[in-house]
Write a protein that binds this DNA or RNA. Structure first.
Lengths: 140, 140
DNA sequence: AATTATAACGTAACCATTACGGTTTGTAAA
DNA sequence: TTTACAAACCGTAATGGTTACGTTATAATT
């Protein structure tokens, strides 16, 4: 879905340096279509670059969120990130069992704007939770 | 909107004791139609009952969330609570300036369920952010 | 009034996140 | 290719929201 994004160009275009570590983080997210915690990213990166600082992880995750390489979500009080597919407005279904993400396109923000006469909606947050096809079968 | 809820009965029906402190917390939420942080609740309560423990605040907020007296939401990594109006399915518009809450009733979860063939949606989280009528005027 | 289970207190621990001074490294210009 | 500099990174500690726990107090029940 996002294979053709030139992340090096995206970084450069925001005056961010292209570092091995950043590319490793991006690669990790690209291989995992789900929301991932900073801790899990740290563990992966610390295996590749022993002694890497938490600061590096947190800073890079946030930086890449700012330039739209990653998407951010809060789950049980913790920040989680996933690779961004930002060419169109969308929301996420998240499997509660395996974390798999599916994109949904329908978005009724206009309907809500009509319902809320007078106020001005600037942004919104929508997330759907449940079980993906595979995880439903596992339980049965 | 929630004036006629008998909170004492709700507490008793869940084998929770009716304490002055709990009633004070409920009263505070009833007077403020917006999401409030534990810290702000603590400051209010510490003025009424000097020396009150943070533990008491956090435990009571969560307990009252469990029995549906309060609703919970995460804002910038922090938990916030508001009084619950739980007699019907709804979502919230939240004013980014003053925190005012407005309820919206439209919810297209069926549409999303149709879009996501195979998966099973169990729950969802929807929040709208923007400016209420008053706050729009203040800026102009 | 006595009993018992729940609530609250005081305090410290926990854990995700952020901050900071010193060092290294990517990048672009000389 | 070397140099210069801003950015990135490291090591470590601080911050701040939240939770835990043993003891004491209090609401509800008998």
């Amino acid at each position: 879905m996002t294979e053709h994004v030139n992340y090096k160009e995206v970084l450069r275009s925001h005056n961010l340096k292209v570092t091995e570590k950043r590319l490793s983080i991006i690669e990790y997210f690209n291989d995992h279509n789900r929301y991932i915690s900073p801790k899990e990213v740290y563990e992966y990166m610390n295996a590749l670059y022993p002694g890497i600082s938490y600061d590096t992880i947190y800073r890079n995750l946030y930086t890449m969120y700012e330039v739209n390489i990653l998407e951010q979500s809060t789950f049980e009080g913790e920040l989680h990130y996933t690779i961004s597919c930002s060419d169109h407005h969308h929301h996420h279904f998240i499997c509660e069992k395996c974390g798999l993400i599916k994109v949904v396109h329908y978005c009724p923000v206009d309907t809500w704007q009509n319902e809320l006469e007078g106020v001005k909606i600037n942004s919104h947050k929508i997330e759907l939770y449940g079980l993906c096809t595979k995880c439903q079968k596992k339980i049965a």
